[in-house]
């Protein structure tokens, strides 16, 4: 569902590590060295305690589906109706993404289902973190 016309991020010095991580197949989050708060989106200081002592680490890539819409009037680059999701990451933060690799229907997209990050290169410079359902054997 990628296309050259998809709106692409313009990384800034403060977010470069995140987008480099995606290219390297890592979902990079930040943890405060003082209060241990884990946060997203990236910035070089802690939004909870204002400390500049923050560390970048590779997250598990695991999460659950917190909420979503199925956009029936998608951006032209997407072409077809698709999910826009809020993923609750295992480490604490929430992030926007798409759930891919399953039908884009309310039946297939159940809230709180387990998800795993997957990376999709959408341009030479940009790779996006997307999520796929984790098959749970019943």
């Amino acid at each position: 569902m990628s296309s050259p016309k998809r709106p692409l991020p313009a990384p800034t010095p403060e977010t470069q590590h995140f987008w480099e991580g995606c290219r390297a197949g890592e979902l990079r989050l930040q943890r405060c060295g003082d209060c241990e708060h884990v946060y997203y989106p990236p910035r070089p200081f802690c939004p909870k305690c204002s400390s500049r002592e923050v560390n970048i680490f590779a997250a598990s890539g695991r999460g659950t589906l917190a909420s979503y819409v199925i956009n029936e009037r998608p951006h032209p680059a997407f072409g077809e109706p698709h999910s826009i999701a809020i993923v609750q990451l295992e480490e604490g933060p929430k992030m926007a993404s798409n759930v891919v690799g399953c039908p884009q229907t309310p039946e297939a997209l159940q809230l709180d289902m387990s998800l795993q990050v997957t990376f999709e290169a959408v341009s030479e410079d940009i790779t996006l973190p997307l999520f796929t359902p984790v098959e749970v054997s019943s």
Partner: peptide
């Protein structure tokens, strides 16, 4: 950087996100 690449396209596909 962190919403638009996933297809948020105006208020109908953004403001609505928390409701489910």
């Amino acid at each position: 950087q962190f919403e638009a690449p996933f297809g948020t396209f105006g208020p109908p596909s953004t403001f609505t996100l928390p409701v489910l």
